[in-house]
């Protein structure tokens, strides 16, 4: 175990990714105890101020301190990323493993459902959730989570199909192991590397999708900041105040890229 950690920190991809994520997480952690300004305090006279020593990252279009909003926005963005991945991972893996392991009718039904879900526009799904259950963080996470199921289900399904007739599975079946035991104690560990990559990609795409939803005016409610919301609010000022757009964009890039590169590193180490 310790060996693996050492290896990980010798993998350049992992290290770079870790540093990127660490910067964002560090800012978020500090934000729990100290914020330079109230995130919602407006100062319209000082709007779109360039970064200086009063506002380290400048102010937004309503004169709010961008650094403080990034520090608090990280909470929402990271929360969305993590919860969406957990939701997708649990549901997707369950569904995918049943389809892959049992095959036949179960596989056919599940595959049809996954196709259906993929054919279904994610925006429409998010809209429905928001219309029915109200526009709150939980529903955005649920909608993004549902959208991420196929990704996990497909990977798990193909993994289980590959291993269901493998030597070690047959052996344990002969020894009288139950399906459940085989599925989750014999086969699942083998596809963990794939799942880790999928998780990192899933986290990245959840953060990006939140930005996408915000762009369509469907993201989390103002004035609460998230990286996606900040980016979509900033987009109209891209020519007038480029830094205002750059900062949330860089934050998103750090988070997305950081997780992807950490995922790369982990899968590399696990493959060796």
């Amino acid at each position: 175990m310790k060996e693996n950690w050492k290896k990980l920190f010798k993998t350049p991809n992992f290290v770079v990714g870790f540093v990127m994520v660490f910067i964002i997480v560090f800012l978020m952690m500090v934000g729990f105890f100290y914020l330079p300004y109230d995130v919602n305090a407006m100062d319209v006279v000082n709007k779109l101020a360039k970064p200086d020593n009063v506002h380290l990252l400048g102010t937004d279009h309503l004169g709010r301190d961008i650094l403080s909003r990034i520090m608090q926005g990280a909470r929402i963005s990271i929360l969305i990323g993590i919860l969406v991945v957990i939701f997708g991972l649990i549901t997707g893996t369950l569904v995918g493993s049943v389809a892959g392991y049992f095959g036949g009718k179960a596989d056919e039904i599940i595959s049809k459902l996954i196709d259906t879900q993929m054919a279904f526009p994610g925006v429409l799904l998010a809209l429905m959730m928001i219309a029915v259950f109200g526009n709150n963080l939980g529903n955005i996470i649920l909608a993004l989570g549902i959208m991420s199921i196929p990704r996990f289900a497909r990977i798990t399904r193909s993994g289980f199909m590959k291993y269901r007739d493998a030597e070690f599975v047959r052996a344990s079946r002969v020894r009288g192991a139950g399906d459940f035991y085989i599925m989750f104690f014999h086969i699942l560990p083998n596809i963990v590397p794939d799942l880790i990559v999928t998780c990192s990609l899933g986290f990245a795409s959840a953060v990006m999708s939140e930005a996408g939803l915000s762009y369509l005016g469907l993201g989390i409610q103002p004035p609460t900041p998230s990286f996606g919301k900040m980016l979509s609010e900033a987009q109209n000022y891209i020519l007038q105040a480029p830094w205002y757009v750059m900062i949330p964009a860089i934050a998103i890039t750090f988070l997305v890229m950081g997780f992807n590169m950490m995922g790369d590193g982990i899968s590399k180490v696990m493959q060796h």
């Binding site: 309503l62 526009n135 005016g217 469907l218 409610q221 103002p222 004035p223 109209n236």
Partner: peptide, 27 residues
């Protein structure tokens, strides 16, 4: 966006007379 921004400013202004505004953006 202009209306959403206006609502955000209203939120801050009305808090001065103890009206606790929350914003709900809808389609």
């Amino acid at each position: 966006q202009a209306h959403v921004d206006t609502a955000q400013i209203l939120m801050a202004q009305l808090s001065q007379i103890n009206i606790n505004v929350s914003i709900e953006t809808i389609e």
